[in-house]
């Protein structure tokens, strides 16, 4: 948050997460290499490395891209999102190993610069089966590189959350490039359709998850609130909100999170100051609303981060009449203390 920077913001959960990533990646690589050696003992070391890292990177990329929509569909997946950037950097590192060995093996033996060779040795841009697929992979690697080097929060602050998010949305373009890199590359010389089926299944899963979660949210966003009284809007029943959790309502194009904490309801702006994470999808931990994305915290009654942090979000008025929750969409200034609404059983 706003205290001094460290290289990596490790805590217990993040360490467990990272150990799991490292363990999974190591087992995958060991298994892949051993199986390859059993079935084809002639395979060279470079080829093994190129194949094992690339397949693992593609697998991780699918996991990374599935985490976002999975969390929006079901909160049980939130722990995966918490440290997604470490997963991203791991994926980039694997892609870098794959890319470097690929460039070395295929382009470093000539007398021209390997990168130049990669970009210019094949110019069949008008052919599908002979398309320069390596250039696609290279471009995707450049995107992953830019994302990895800006993954520290320092860059989020200095590039501004908006620029940062836009830069990181290029991962979708990179994903498309990776799919085509695989399809126009190695698959063009494989007679086994299983590779096409795997890639197709992966892409279909991601597209479905993203469309489902997007459509689900559009419903929430487009909900019309008919009942209005003195600026307050009827949103839901008291029982609809679980303890220490929130429901999100979109009124006048703003998303507001209504939290239930210690038998009271409080409303804050749904957008976290850190990266624009959905505060209403988080929960109350240690008396603070905790953003599901990276754990930024705010007090429910005033929307302020506990000291020494200085982030503040807008607060809203809530009232309860006959077990019905009414919300006033007029925002108070960021960090304004609001009394909240008491729940009487």
């Amino acid at each position: 948050m706003s205290a001094s920077y460290a290289a990596v913001g490790w805590n217990r959960q993040k360490k467990i997460y990272d150990w799991l990533i490292a363990g999974f990646c190591t087992s995958y690589l060991v298994l892949f290499i051993s199986l390859s050696l059993v079935f084809n003992e002639q395979v060279t070391f470079e080829t093994l490395l190129i194949r094992s890292t690339s397949t693992l990177a593609v697998l991780l990329l699918h996991v990374i891209l599935a985490i976002g929509p999975l969390c929006r569909l079901n909160k049980k997946f939130l722990p995966l999102l918490y440290n997604r950037r470490h997963l991203g950097v791991t994926m980039f590192t694997l892609s870098l190993v794959h890319g470097s060995f690929g460039i070395f093996q295929f382009h470093a033996l000539g007398n021209i610069n390997p990168i130049l060779s990669l970009l210019t040795s094949n110019t069949n841009f008008n052919s599908l089966s002979a398309f320069p697929f390596q250039a696609l992979g290279f471009l995707a690697l450049v995107i992953f590189f830019l994302m990895a080097i800006t993954s520290h929060d320092f860059w989020l602050h200095h590039l501004s959350p908006k620029v940062w998010k836009t830069l990181h949305m290029f991962v979708y373009l990179a994903y498309f490039l990776v799919v085509m890199h695989v399809m126009l590359g190695v698959i063009q010389y494989e007679s086994n359709p299983v590779f096409v089926i795997i890639i197709f299944a992966g892409a279909t899963t991601l597209v479905t998850l993203h469309l489902l979660s997007g459509i689900k949210e559009r419903k929430t966003d487009n909900r019309q609130f008919a009942l209005q009284q003195q600026g307050f809007v009827y949103v839901c029943g008291v029982k609809d909100i679980e303890n220490s959790r929130a429901k999100i309502f979109c009124i006048d194009k703003e998303r507001i999170a209504v939290y239930r904490h210690e038998n009271k309801l409080f409303a804050v702006h749904n957008v976290c100051k850190h990266q624009g994470g959905p505060l209403g999808e988080g929960k109350i931990l240690d008396g603070c609303i905790t953003c599901p994305w990276h754990g930024y915290q705010y007090l429910p009654q005033n929307g302020q981060s506990p000291p020494p942090f200085r982030e503040k979000v807008s607060t809203y008025d809530v009232k309860i009449v006959d077990n019905k929750v009414w919300l006033n969409p007029a925002a108070s200034a960021e960090g304004t203390e609001r009394p909240g609404a008491e729940i009487k059983d």
Partner: peptide, 26 residues
């Protein structure tokens, strides 16, 4: 340019090097 960097670790300084090399004019 950043108050948060006062007292920041050397690990942090090293980790921002690649980004600095790319975004240096900014």
């Amino acid at each position: 340019i950043d108050e948060g960097a006062h007292g920041a670790t050397w690990g942090f300084r090293l980790i921002i090097i690649p980004g600095t090399i790319v975004f240096w004019p900014f």
